[in-house]
């Protein structure tokens, strides 16, 4: 395995770049980051819509989430592949298509994570803010979302790990990320499929495991801040919470 790694490390890392488009691990990470950044506003919108006081907005968002969660990501990728050129008029690359598919996908999943964080906030926060005369939107922007988004940072990091894993499907429509590189290597070597694919598994493992560890650290910091927040809600445990945090 190590000799395969030393022979093909460049292909695995950046694909055929600069002789071709960016590929390999670099493309995996670029796609993942792009998907997370673009999906984030969609997810926030979905989460706010899911908790909206207006019925039809709530329902529309629920239908979107149920539909996306009800079909495989692969199917969403195929839909994006043929719908995107029709909608935008341009034939975008496989990687861009996959990023769009992931944005639709994560809009629902990340949206649910943010919604859970919104629901978990004590109603007292909304009540206090509205009682001061602040409007629904001001309350959302200045009081509710800042807290909810901070609280769901661990979930967001977990979603990022999932995104990285999901980019492995991109090769099916022609994107040259790291799974594609592995297929190329296997096609060349032919006699060492186990080494090639186990090495691929190893590459993903290293990436995702490191990201999960970082996510755990973030989670610990958020937990510490949040136990302080419990003290803000009042109750006999307020002094106790202060003592423990």
């Amino acid at each position: 395995m190590l000799d395969i790694l030393s022979d093909y490390w460049l292909l695995l890392l950046v694909g055929q770049f600069p002789q071709g488009p960016l590929g390999g691990i670099a493309l995996t990470l670029v796609m993942s980051i792009a998907a997370l950044l673009l999906a984030f506003p969609v997810a926030v919108a979905v989460a706010v819509a899911r908790t909206s006081p207006i019925v039809w907005i709530r329902r529309a968002a629920s239908i979107y989430v149920t539909a996306v969660r009800g079909i495989p990501l692969l199917l969403i990728i195929f839909w994006s592949f043929f719908v995107l050129p029709l909608v935008t008029g341009i034939n975008s690359s496989a990687s861009v298509t996959v990023v769009c598919a992931l944005v639709v996908y994560e809009g629902a999943y990340l949206g649910e994570a943010i919604r859970a964080a919104l629901d978990a906030l004590p109603t007292g926060q909304t009540e206090a803010s509205r009682s001061l005369g602040m409007s629904y939107w001001t309350t959302m922007m200045k009081v509710i979302l800042p807290q909810a988004l901070f609280n769901c940072l661990p979930s967001m990091m977990n979603q990022f790990v999932l995104i990285v894993k999901n980019t492995s499907l991109a090769y099916i429509i022609g994107s040259q990320e790291v799974t594609f590189s592995a297929h190329s290597i296997n096609a060349q070597l032919l006699t060492k499929p186990f080494e090639v694919y186990f090495m691929l598994a190893g590459i993903y493992f290293v990436m995702c495991y490191s990201l999960s560890r970082i996510a755990k650290l973030v989670e610990r910091r958020v937990e510490r801040k949040r136990s302080g927040q419990l003290a803000v809600q009042g109750g006999r445990n307020s002094t106790l919470a202060r003592a423990s945090s």
Binding site: A128, R130, V232, G234
Partner: peptide
């Protein structure tokens, strides 16, 4: 909102905004 801005309400659970400092809580 206009009505509520003219009525002060103090809650049993305080409901301060934990992500803002004390003075920002009051100034918000």
């Amino acid at each position: 909102n206009e009505l509520r801005s003219r009525i002060g309400f103090v809650f049993q659970q305080f409901n301060l905004f934990p992500h803002l400092s004390v003075k920002d809580n009051i100034a918000l």
